[in-house]
Nucleic acid binder design. Structure first.
Lengths: 232, 232
DNA sequence: CCATCCATGTCGTTA
DNA sequence: TAACGACGTGGATGG
């Protein structure tokens, strides 16, 4: 990893064109050749960048320039397979250091949708007394339904689980319901939209279509899990 | 901006929990207090981060540790308003430097969806001979339709423009069409889904619903612009 | 401040 | 490889 603090001007030409006027910035060159251009504010997204796989070539400083310090006036060109380019014109370098980091062991996550689905599958009674699980990831022609259940009366219920319940989740469940209801062995199938948080517009659309909304409490589900663990 | 290369272990506790085992990484602390943890690979997204506004507090090295160099064993805790935390345990520092960058003049972009819409509005004949533009951003109760046009027969056409045409774009256009077709002054309204690239599933769904798909060529549209410019 | 929608989205999983 | 959906999505914009 190479860290360069430099006065620079940057142009990206690819899916769009973008220009950064000259200013002092951090240029971060990773071992795989990818380049990030960061300012001293904003968020984790760089002002400009090139993702790997890509290749950096450095054109020498302009002929007329004074060769003081580390290549004033140099031009870095980073190109990827698709021909997109990041062109960095460097006029002054304040800092330049390289570091050996090795391969990163990587991130361990917990608490995402897969885990929510797992927890709810083990506690379908959260959806209502007498609910039973038929299958997780019930396969259909247009993709898997998160949970297929049966209500106390024995009727099929398709459940779509999201961390954040928005309108496209309702649309997705609607497509599943349309399809499942064409199956005479399953029909009539009702729908439940389950999420940690459900946006008002999504709730309205779901209700309009006769889909029941259930707000999930991740901690309570996990707590129920702990309780069950303690009891048995 | 402060750049630190250090052997560190990182935990994020917030919307999810995530853990990074000990390894050598770049810690980037921006002027606004935000922190990025980068490895020497992957893309522009950090392994872990905290976005501003947030605050960094540094707990001193553990009592038993030898005070050599810059605080081995120190713990950095970065907290935001919502109470989410990034906890960085540092065991060895290889590099530590600070730099004054100043405010960045910012990015100038060209070629995003807004520009596509502008170009297509000026060249509605791309949709078919005899098409005319009624309005850009035609307002409805559920949001603006990108373009409202009339076909050669004078019938209304709603156009949804995307850079990448996916299924949710088709759903969006469908909702607009449902609404517009309730207006007796406008009905019947047909739909056109226009994008630089249209995914197969989106195309299938659109066709199923009687929505015509049009693939846009940004360069050709811009070229048509240039041609027009040269002719007049 | 809340809601919506775009993004050089990026990132994983699966067909 | 391409498509598809989730994301600690982030970020801008409009009500």
């Amino acid at each position: 990893m190479r860290l360069v603090i430099a006065e620079c001007e940057v142009d990206y030409v690819g899916r769009l064109t973008a220009h950064l006027p000259s200013a002092r910035r951090l240029l971060l060159i990773k071992a795989d050749g990818s380049v990030l251009v960061h300012s001293d504010g904003g968020s984790y997204k760089p002002l400009n960048w090139m993702s790997p796989p890509c290749w950096l070539t450095e054109e020498p400083a302009a002929a007329g320039s004074t060769a003081e310090g580390a290549d004033p006036g140099a031009l870095w060109v980073v190109t990827n397979k698709a021909g997109e380019q990041l062109r960095i014109r460097i006029t002054e370098i304040e800092h330049d250091s390289s570091h050996q980091l090795g391969v990163d062991p990587g991130l361990v996550k917990d608490g995402v949708e897969a885990h929510l689905q797992e927890l709810l599958a083990e506690h379908v009674e959260t959806l209502g007394i007498g609910f039973t699980l038929v299958r997780r990831e019930y396969m259909t022609a247009i993709g898997p339904v998160d949970l297929l259940c049966r209500d106390p009366a024995g009727a099929a219920v398709a459940v779509e689980i999201k961390r954040r319940g928005e309108i496209d989740g309702v649309e997705q469940l609607t497509r599943y319901l349309d399809l499942l209801n064409r199956d005479p062995l399953l029909s009539p199938v009702s729908g439940v939209f389950a999420a940690q948080q459900i946006k008002p517009q999504a709730r309205t659309l779901a209700t309009d279509r006769g889909i029941r909304c259930v707000t999930l409490d991740y901690d309570a589900l996990r707590g129920a899990d702990d309780t069950a663990f303690r009891l048995f």
